[in-house]
Simulated scan of single mutants.
Amino acid sequence: MICLEWWSYEIVVLLSGHLPNARLETSVLSICLTVDILHYYIPYSFGVAASTRVSNELGAGNPEAAKMALLAVSALGAMEVIIASTILFCSRSILGYAFGKDKELVNYVKEMTPLLCLSIFADTIQTILSGVARGSGWQDIGAYINLGSYYLVGIPMAIVLGFVCHLNGKGLWSGLIIGIVIQCILLTLVTCSTNWQKQARKARERMFKEELIDEQ
C-alpha cells in the first residue's frame, strides 16, 4: 500500500524534469515532497496506532471499541493537520529560504504552498484510514484502492494538467492531489460501510485458526 503511494510521488518528480525550466520545476517539486515527507510521519504514527488498536479490539471481540479508536485517532489527526497547514500557509513567504536564496525559487514555493497544504490535509485523512484498513485486515483492498487512485487517476491527471494544460509543476502536483482525494473517498466509503461486528467475528476466527495450527 505504502510503496504504491510513494512511488507515484517519485514518478511525478521525475516527470518534472521534462517540463520547461526543468531545474526550477524539479527543485520546487522536490521541496514539496520533502516538506510532505517531514509531515507525513505524524499522521503515519496515528495510522500505526489506529492499526494496532483496531486490530487488538477486533481480536478481543470489541467492535464498539474499534469504532471508538477510529473516531479518536480521526479527531487527533484533524486537529494536527489544521495546526500544521495553518503554520505552513502562514510561513509560505519564507518557506523557500529554508532551501535556497534564489528569489525565483522562493516565489515559486510560495505559489505552491496552498497546493501543498491541500495535499497534506488529504494525505492525513488517507494515512489514518489506511492504518484502519491494515488493522482490519483489508490490505488487499487498500492496495487496489491505491493502485487505482494514483496510477489510473492521479498520474494520468498529473500528465494532462502538467503537459497538456501547461500548468507545469502546479499541474503535476494537482494531479497527485486528485489521486489522494479519490483515495480518501474510496477509503471513507469502505470504512463507513464496514460491519464491525462481522469484522470482529472474522478476527476471532483467524485467531482460533492460528491457535489450532500452532497446536498441531
Results as ranks from 00 to 15, higher is better:
residue 181 V to Q: 01
residue 49 A to L: 03
residue 202 K to H: 14
residue 189 L to F: 15
residue 164 V to D: 02
residue 203 A to F: 11
residue 209 K to E: 10
residue 216 Q to N: 13
residue 142 G to V: 02
residue 27 S to T: 14
residue 53 R to S: 04
residue 105 L to H: 09
residue 188 T to H: 02
residue 202 K to A: 09
residue 216 Q to W: 14
residue 112 M to A: 03
residue 54 V to L: 07
residue 179 G to K: 12
residue 30 S to Y: 02
residue 3 C to S: 10
residue 211 E to F: 14
residue 64 E to K: 14
residue 120 I to R: 13
residue 98 A to W: 14
residue 137 G to L: 02
residue 95 L to H: 03
residue 121 F to M: 15
residue 46 F to M: 15
residue 17 G to C: 08
residue 193 S to F: 04
residue 169 G to T: 04
residue 142 G to Q: 08
residue 190 V to T: 09
residue 144 Y to C: 11
residue 203 A to G: 13
residue 23 R to A: 09
residue 156 P to E: 07
residue 6 W to M: 05
residue 153 V to T: 07
residue 159 I to M: 10
residue 107 N to E: 15
residue 189 L to H: 09
residue 122 A to S: 08
residue 57 E to Y: 10
residue 79 M to C: 15
residue 200 A to T: 08
residue 96 G to H: 02
residue 11 I to T: 14
residue 112 M to E: 02
residue 21 N to S: 06
residue 184 C to H: 00
residue 48 V to W: 00
residue 107 N to M: 13
residue 31 I to Y: 01
residue 137 G to C: 06
residue 143 A to S: 07
residue 34 T to N: 12
residue 211 E to C: 13
residue 80 E to A: 11
residue 39 H to S: 13
residue 61 G to Y: 07
residue 24 L to F: 01
residue 28 V to E: 06
residue 83 I to N: 11
residue 170 K to Q: 10
residue 200 A to R: 05
residue 71 L to N: 10
residue 47 G to K: 03
residue 120 I to L: 13
residue 47 G to Q: 05
residue 116 L to M: 13
residue 176 L to N: 00
residue 75 A to M: 10
residue 189 L to S: 14
residue 184 C to Q: 01
residue 149 S to V: 05
residue 68 M to W: 11
residue 88 L to Y: 03
residue 93 S to Q: 15
residue 70 L to H: 06
residue 32 C to M: 10
residue 162 G to S: 03
residue 81 V to D: 07
residue 112 M to K: 00
residue 10 E to S: 08
residue 50 A to V: 05
residue 137 G to M: 06
residue 156 P to C: 05
residue 92 R to V: 12
residue 178 I to K: 09
residue 17 G to Q: 04
residue 141 I to E: 07
residue 1 M to F: 08
residue 63 P to V: 04
residue 28 V to W: 00
residue 99 F to V: 02
residue 140 D to R: 15
residue 73 V to P: 03
residue 7 W to P: 15
residue 129 L to P: 00
residue 111 E to Q: 15
residue 189 L to Y: 12
residue 55 S to T: 00
residue 96 G to Q: 04
residue 173 W to N: 02
residue 99 F to G: 04
residue 9 Y to D: 04
residue 168 N to S: 12
residue 138 W to P: 01
residue 186 L to E: 07
residue 111 E to I: 09
residue 126 Q to S: 07
residue 110 K to S: 14
residue 79 M to Y: 13
residue 29 L to D: 04
residue 147 L to H: 01
residue 143 A to T: 09
residue 159 I to K: 06
residue 204 R to T: 14
residue 97 Y to R: 07
residue 73 V to A: 00
residue 67 K to A: 10
residue 51 S to P: 09
residue 93 S to E: 12
residue 121 F to T: 11
residue 73 V to H: 09
residue 165 C to E: 14
residue 97 Y to A: 06
residue 193 S to L: 10
residue 61 G to E: 13
residue 196 W to R: 02
residue 73 V to Q: 08
residue 118 L to R: 06
residue 44 Y to Q: 11
residue 206 R to I: 01
